[in-house]
Design a protein around this nucleic acid. Structure first.
Length: 211
DNA sequence: ATCCCGAGGG
DNA sequence: CCCTCTGGAT
């Protein structure tokens, strides 16, 4: 079975298992998703969803973030971890959005990744979720599961995984598929001891029972 | 101990 | 490639 064939089978199987595919960060609009995604690094979505309502109540507009005291942002987001860099990134990305992009979150990979604290993972998520563009979100789950299932050969470099996946995934499927990999990575194909005995991908996965 | 939907710098 | 930033969950 080729990687592309394996991918198509995985797409269909996960579609059946997880009919609804969407980002579990609780946000409204591009700016909130951008900020919530930056907060989600090394942190659970549940924790981010606990923090963002407080954050967005205190800073309801782009301009309020531009004028924010970093310390106030830090105090609110501390429990998400990596709070110093995240707070600085949030303020600085808002400054750039205000000054370079007329107050609108940009809608291209190049412009998004030019923002402080916005890497390819965050940019892809926003491009897919907010702007409806084909995106491959190569996060920790996507990288781990793609490698295990046998869709990719590289395992460490996120950008290489993204490119390998883009080569075999139908563009119109990639966005939802990546979300479903996250669901599956949390529920079944966990980092430490994957539940291969109850995995819907058992018949196509090259690592079934071997991890 | 090891991992969580990362990004930037060396 | 590697490391660091960091709190919380398991």
């Amino acid at each position: 079975m080729t990687k592309k064939q394996r991918a198509l089978k995985a797409i269909e199987a996960l579609k059946e298992l997880y009919p609804v595919a969407h980002c579990s960060l609780d946000t409204t609009g591009a700016l909130q998703l951008l900020i919530a995604t930056r907060l989600s690094a090394q942190c659970t979505d549940a924790r981010v969803n606990q923090v963002t309502p407080v954050l967005f109540r205190k800073f309801p507009t782009l301009q309020s973030f531009v004028e924010a005291d970093i310390k106030d942002i830090e105090d609110i987001i501390r429990s998400c971890g990596l709070y110093k860099t995240k707070a600085k990134d949030i303020k600085n990305m808002c400054i750039d959005i205000a000054q370079k992009y007329g107050g609108q979150v940009p809608d291209t990979m190049e412009d998004l990744t030019s923002l402080p604290g916005v890497g390819r993972k965050t940019a892809n998520l926003v491009l897919g979720e907010v702007f409806g563009k084909p995106a491959v979100v190569a996060d920790t789950h996507c990288i781990r599961l793609s490698g295990r299932i046998g869709l990719t050969t590289v395992t460490k470099d996120a950008y290489k995984v993204e490119k390998e996946l883009r080569a075999i995934l139908p563009p119109e499927e990639s966005n939802d598929f990546c979300h479903r990999l996250v669901y599956h990575g949390r529920a079944v194909c966990t980092a430490r001891s994957p539940k291969c005995d109850q995995c819907t991908l058992a018949d196509i996965c090259i690592s079934c029972g071997k991890v």
